[in-house]
């Protein structure tokens, strides 16, 4: 796929801004006097600083058979190896009350949808789930004593991403545990989730619909995989 928003910043001294003539054109060049370094944006992730910095090539693997999680961490490498499947895996999570996770923090919904879209586009196996009233919380008395119920956890095998999610959500508690199987890790106590309608909703748009989280629950994601 081509990115039409293609810019090429050269280090030339010309001040020309080139108006794209028509939209079928694939790129427009903007020559900028940006000092010694120059930046080239091409139609994909490759971008180089000719002035020196060469970001490591991105992890993206376009192979159709590519099946691993986004952040390839040392603790995850080999996750697709069948021989290692029985070995206990580490799961990382952030947890807070259901109202915070599913009702108040609407950007959280956008983030999860964005990530699910990305995993679909790149043919990667989903490695994150929402768990309502997770059973693994019983192992964490220090968390449960500070938690309103019902609680909702975002669980992932990707430690690095959970660190990011902790930074984003802030008002959450974070921990990790080991489990022998995905079923065991994501086991939950059936709980009805109800939210009161906000008293004065002043946003010029409606709230995300109740139940937006269903595609992220373990049952739903395993169904789509099957």
């Amino acid at each position: 796929m081509l990115l039409p928003a293609t810019l090429s910043f050269g280090s030339c001294t010309s001040l020309a801004a080139v108006a794209p003539t028509h939209q079928s054109e694939k790129s427009a060049q903007l020559h900028l006097p940006l000092g010694s370094s120059s930046l080239v944006f091409s139609s994909n992730t490759n971008f180089k600083f000719n002035g020196g910095l060469q970001p490591k090539s991105l992890f993206l693997n376009t192979s159709k058979n590519f099946k691993t999680s986004v952040a390839v961490q040392s603790d995850q490498v080999g996750s697709s190896d069948p021989a290692e499947k029985e070995v206990a895996k580490k799961y990382y999570f952030v947890v807070a009350n259901a109202k915070f996770m599913l009702d108040e923090e609407e950007h959280f919904q956008e983030q999860l949808c964005e990530r699910l879209r990305l995993f679909g586009e790149r043919n990667m196996e989903q490695d994150f789930w929402l768990v309502i009233e997770p059973k693994f919380l019983d192992k964490f008395p220090n968390i449960t004593k500070r938690l309103s119920r019902p609680a909702v956890a975002l669980v992932s095998t990707n430690r690095v991403w959970i660190t990011f999610m902790k930074l984003r959500l802030d008002r959450v508690l974070s921990e990790s545990f080991e489990a022998d199987s995905l079923e065991e890790a994501l086991a939950s106590t059936p709980t009805k989730i109800e939210f009161k309608k906000p008293e004065n909703w002043v946003a010029p748009y409606p709230k995300y619909e109740y139940g937006w989280w269903e595609p992220f629950l373990p049952q739903a994601s395993s169904k789509t995989e099957a």
Partner: peptide, 21 residues
């Protein structure tokens, strides 16, 4: 840890193919 996590998040480049007119 936070900076590594952010770096990974930016490298992921969610909008790599988004800006297509």
């Amino acid at each position: 840890a936070e900076f590594e996590a952010l770096l990974q998040e930016f490298k992921t480049d969610y909008n790599q193919t988004h800006f297509v007119r």
